[in-house]
Design a protein around this nucleic acid. Structure first.
Lengths: 227, 227
DNA sequence: ACAAAAGTGTTTCGGCTACACCCATGC
DNA sequence: GCATGGGTGTAGCCGAAACACTTTTGT
């Protein structure tokens, strides 16, 4: 390795991924038993080293693919953690991402192979080092995102009812939302499309399924209105 | 240097600081002529290497002290920039911060010594590498902050008029605010204290000076109301 | 019949916006 | 007197919140 221009100390650079999922009315966190020292066999976030020829986002995508078998995962930078002593194994600067994955689509055998487990977020065990704080920060950032745009496209199945969407929001914010108001609010955003298909499992009356419309579809609809 | 636990490639890790100031109704950006190759003598953000024994925040604080002579500067992480080819001198991952400094208090001789210049943000020159994008991201983040809490404590002098505060907001958002509504809004936040002192330079009638009350003072006031 | 969710309608309240309007004073 | 910013008041609009009410259907 040669960097003719720069002479300075090098650093270990890692990414850690806070992986959120959703199932049965619960916001979930994917956590794995660490397979190497230090802190082997303790619960931790999924992480990996950043290679010289990739961005930190690409490193996170690699890590996510390794454990879920999924590509095209929603990713967002959270924070850099860089306390010199944060990792007893040496100086490691970690860039934290959070991800949202559709729990029903991921590869469960890969998760099992990594000795990883989906925890309900409130019931997660203590994680190593500063990983608990990473989860806190990521959860904050997720709430912030969810408060100014509709999340769920990456966490819910392709089609879902307004009830399921509301339960997701209640899980994310750990509070209840008025069913009527929540419904009116999300439908006013014009990002959901009602399907000619009803869910009759969760209610007697049956509730229409909805799906997220893509951004281009939404744009087209907007244009038609505006002409 | 020894890291017995980890065997992996190392990275160059840097911080770059988007330094905002404010003067004469203009949001300012501090930019310096780069003193080393590559891209010597071109405009760039102030940056520095992250040392092994410090956090990235501490590295940013060092950089800020070097150029302003100030400590206790408001700092916020913006984004990590990590395109492998972003810096022609080699693989450098950069963590971007933005800072707000009181333009009237900083050490102008240090700025001069670094061949740095305060530009009005809209008139800034093209910066090296991806630094223009860093400034954009930082400005976005600043706007976001300013939209959910009152900024100015770090940019304005100790005492200031509502007009001056409004002009700061107009500079940050590049739009006008209704004077009456702006006044009522900021005063309703209960974070400003009116002084028995008027500014008679900027208006015939004279306008009261205000100052930010500290967080603890604000807390106490809240408590008194709530009892 | 009743419970339980679906879906709609209504009322109230608070905050934001767009103003109008008086005040003080330097020119 | 008039222009300029300081400062206050008010009417209208809109969205959020609270909640009533009707619909549908499995049990």
């Amino acid at each position: 390795m040669s960097h003719p221009q720069y002479k300075h100390q090098h650093q270990y650079l890692a990414v850690d991924c806070v992986i959120f999922g959703y199932e049965n009315g619960q916001l979930k966190l994917l956590s794995a038993k660490r397979k190497f020292e230090p802190a082997m066999d303790q619960w931790s976030l999924m992480g990996g080293w950043v290679r010289m020829d990739e961005t930190v986002e690409q490193a996170a995508i690699r890590v996510l693919f390794q454990i879920t078998g999924l590509r095209d995962i929603y990713l967002e930078q959270v924070q850099v953690f860089s306390q010199p002593q944060r990792d007893p194994g040496g100086r490691v600067v970690s860039i934290v991402f959070y991800a949202m994955i559709p729990t029903d689509q991921h590869d469960k055998s890969l998760v099992h192979e990594h000795e990883a487990v989906w925890f309900n977020l409130p019931d997660k065990p203590k994680l190593i080092f500063d990983h608990d704080q990473m989860v806190e920060f990521a959860h904050e950032k997720l709430k912030q995102k969810a408060s100014y745009e509709l999340i769920g496209a990456d966490l819910l199945p392709e089609k879902f009812t307004i009830l399921q969407l509301r339960l997701l929001y209640e899980a994310v914010f750990q509070r209840e939302f008025d069913p009527g108001n929540f419904r009116k609010k999300v439908l006013s955003l014009k990002v959901l499309e009602r399907l000619n298909d009803k869910n009759t499992n969760e209610s007697k009356k049956g509730a229409y399924y909805f799906r997220f419309i893509t951004k281009t579809e939404a744009l087209i609809k907007e244009r038609i209105v505006k002409i």
